[in-house]
Every structure is written in structure tokens, then in C-alpha cells.
């Protein structure tokens, strides 16, 4: 079997805190191929951002500890690489854009110089060459008047433009994998669409693999090819977009889909998922979702978490009743 572009297997991350050990990521697996977009969907505390940071090797350690699993980039294990070698990977092979571009950019360095820095450090370009490469990449993310705005500072740009600058900086070195952590959450709706379109366009050009981390089921519907749903640090369900939206095999995904308001349907009362996401210090035994699950049975309450069970090709769900849920929805 050919190597995937990125292969994350059974990743586990813990945080040592004064309240004990927080199991932020507790067995996450997914693969990403060239030119593919996978969405990692989850609520706060689901471990989706920690997963991204673990892949990037930017977790603060301590308190974070990677306690298991592997992350392979084209077959090469990158977890536990020495910092020097990881720095070579970051930026040039895997890059990440953050939700809040204003705090991710340095406020006292002009945006042009910040992008040019990438070329100078990783590619060893001369000042002049880096400048022209920077202007090229600024044009590619469609920043109007790229030459004139080279010397502007982050605060002089609007939210949407700042996000474009961060994207420019991250695609500057043509990474093979781009991780976007809630890239549009802080933006206005009309600007969100622009940024998502830009990301898709860049991906089509460069064939990079794109990991979209989000809490918003709507944003990823027509962007991602596959979706991985996380809950309490675990992958709950994984599969092609259409399968997840129309033939989910997991009660959590089912509840999530039912509970979000849809602009095309007027429902006054939405079926909400009862209860709260669990504390990471006391993840429920058995299936982590069982206290909130409408289908809960004794099997869910005790013992080990259910395994990821394949219900269809490339579609797996972590639920004892995966087949049943899948069947039910398909019949409906």
C-alpha cells in the first residue's frame, strides 16, 4: 500500500495540570492524501486544536505530553523529531493558519517583511529575491496593491485581509499539508466565503492536502471531501462528506446535525443534545458520549470505549450501535 501524504494513527496527548491529567486527545486516527481536504469537526474541548498542534509539533511541553501514536508524513515518522529537524518540517512541509490572524502576526513588523522572512530563513533567499517572491505570493492571495502594501503593518488591514496575509505566509513555501484551525470563525459571513474560496483555489493549484479544523458543520459541507468528527478527544465518526451528512452512523453526529439551525428550514424548537461536553479530567467510562446519548445501553456505560467500526467502505463510527444507526438513517 502506498504511503498516505499524512497518516495520523492513534494519537494521544495528555496535559499535566494541577487538577490532574487532562486527556485532551485520546486516540485520533486519520489519513490525508495529496489534493484532499479533510475536515476535523468538534466542539471546544474535543481535542481538535490540540491534535493540530501535536501534528505541527508546537505543543507546549510541559504541560502537554504526547503519550502515544504516530504521525507519518509520506511514510516518515515526525512525532518526536528533534526540534531542529521539526523546524525544517514546519513551514516548508506542514504549515498552519490560525483563527486569529491579528494575534498570530507580529504587530511591529511589516507584513511584507514577515512573509519575506519565510523565504529568507527556509530558502536562504537574498533580500531582493525574497521581496519579489513575497509580492508574488501576496498577489496570489489577492491582496489589492501588493507592492504598496508590502510595508503596511497587520493592524492596518481588515480582518479578511489579515487572514489572507497569514495564508500568504503559510503557503509561501508550498507546503504539502496545510492545517487551517478555524480559519473563518472570526470573520464576517460575506468574508468567510471569500477565504474558503481562496483556500480551495490554492489547493487546486498546488495539490496540497488541507486539514480544516472547525466547529461549524455548515462551513465544511461543500469544501471537505471527508469529515472526521471528534468528541472528548476521540474520533467518533469518519467518512466521506455525503455519508456523514446523509447516512451518519453515530448518535453524536446525528444529534449535532439535528441541533444546528439551518437557514433553509424554519424550525422553532431544535432538538438539542442534552447535557454538556464532559470535563477532560473525568471523561466518562465506556463511550464518552453515553451520558448525553439517546441510545445509551449498559454496554456503553462500562468497559472500554467502542472501537471504530467500519459500516461502509471508508466510513467508520465509534459506537456499539453503528450498524443500527447507519441502517436507520438509510431507511428513512
Amino acid at each position: 500500500m502506498a504511503d498516505h501524504l499524512l497518516d495520523v494513527a492513534d494519537l494521544k496527548v495528555e496535559f499535566d495540570t494541577r487538577d490532574g491529567v487532562a486527556r485532551a486527545v485520546n486516540g485520533v486516527s486519520f489519513t490525508l492524501d495529496e489534493g484532499e481536504t479533510i475536515a476535523i469537526l468538534g466542539e471546544s474541548g474535543s481535542g481538535k486544536s490540540v491534535t493540530a498542534q501535536a501534528i505541527m509539533g508546537i505543543l507546549d511541553s510541559p504541560p502537554a505530553r504526547i503519550t502515544g501514536g504516530s504521525v507519518r508524513l509520506r511514510g516518515r515518522e515526525i512525532l518526536g523529531l528533534p526540534e531542529k529537524e521539526y523546524q525544517q518540517v514546519r513551514g516548508s512541509q506542514i504549515a498552519m493558519i490560525f483563527q486569529d490572524a491579528l494575534s498570530a502576526l507580529n504587530p511591529v513588523i511589516s507584513v511584507g517583511d514577515q512573509i519575506a522572512e519565510m523565504f529568507r530563513v527556509h530558502r536562504g533567499m537574498s533580500r531582493k529575491a525574497a521581496r519579489s517572491a513575497t509580492i508574488d505570493v501576496m498577489k496570489r492571495v489577492r491582496i489589492p496593491g501588493a507592492e504598496e502594501r508590502y510595508g503596511s503593518y497587520p493592524h492596518q488591514f481588515s480582518g479578511g485581509m489579515r487572514q489572507r496575509i497569514m495564508i500568504a505566509m503559510m503557503i509561501a513555501l508550498k507546503p504539502q499539508v496545510l492545517i487551517a484551525d478555524e480559519p473563518t470563525t472570526a470573520l464576517d459571513v460575506t468574508v468567510q466565503a471569500q477565504i474558503m474560496d481562496l483556500l480551495q483555489e490554492l489547493q487546486a493549484e498546488t495539490r496540497m492536502g488541507l486539514i480544516l479544523i472547525t466547529h461549524d458543520l455548515g462551513v465544511v459541507a461543500d469544501v471537505a471531501e471527508r469529515i472526521s468528527v471528534m468528541y472528548a478527544g476521540r474520533t467518533m465518526e469518519q467518512g466521506p462528506v455525503a455519508e456523514i451528512y446523509h447516512h451518519t452512523a453515530n448518535p453524536y453526529t446525528e444529534g449535532l446535525l439535528a441541533s444546528i439551525p439551518k437557514i433553509d428550514e424554519r424550525e422553532t424548537r431544535l432538538p438539542a443534545i442534552k447535557g454538556l461536553p464532559p470535563s477532560l479530567f473525568a471523561v466518562p467510562k465506556g463511550c464518552a458520549f453515553h451520558p448525553r446519548c439517546p441510545r445509551v445501553s449498559d454496554q456503553c456505560r462500562s468497559g472500554a470505549a467502542p472501537p471504530l467500526t467500519e459500516v461502509a467502505p471508508d466510513h467508520a463510527s465509534r459506537c456499539w450501535f453503528a450498524e443500527e444507526v447507519y441502517g436507520n438513517v438509510a431507511d428513512a
Partner: peptide, 27 residues
């Protein structure tokens, strides 16, 4: 119309079938 068309719909087919209005620039 632009706001409504930009609001994401959690349904891949419906989302793809819409003619989305992409507004230029910022407010």
C-alpha cells in the same frame, strides 16, 4: 441576498446547488 447566500448550509448537495453571491472586498 448576499448574506443569505453566504450563510453555510450543512448539506453538501444543497450547498453545491446554490448560486453563491461572492461580495468583493470588505465593509
Amino acid at each position: 441576498a448576499a448574506l443569505i447566500s453566504a450563510a453555510p448550509i450543512p448539506d453538501p448537495e444543497l450547498q453545491a446547488s446554490r448560486e453563491r453571491i461572492e461580495l468583493e472586498g470588505d465593509v
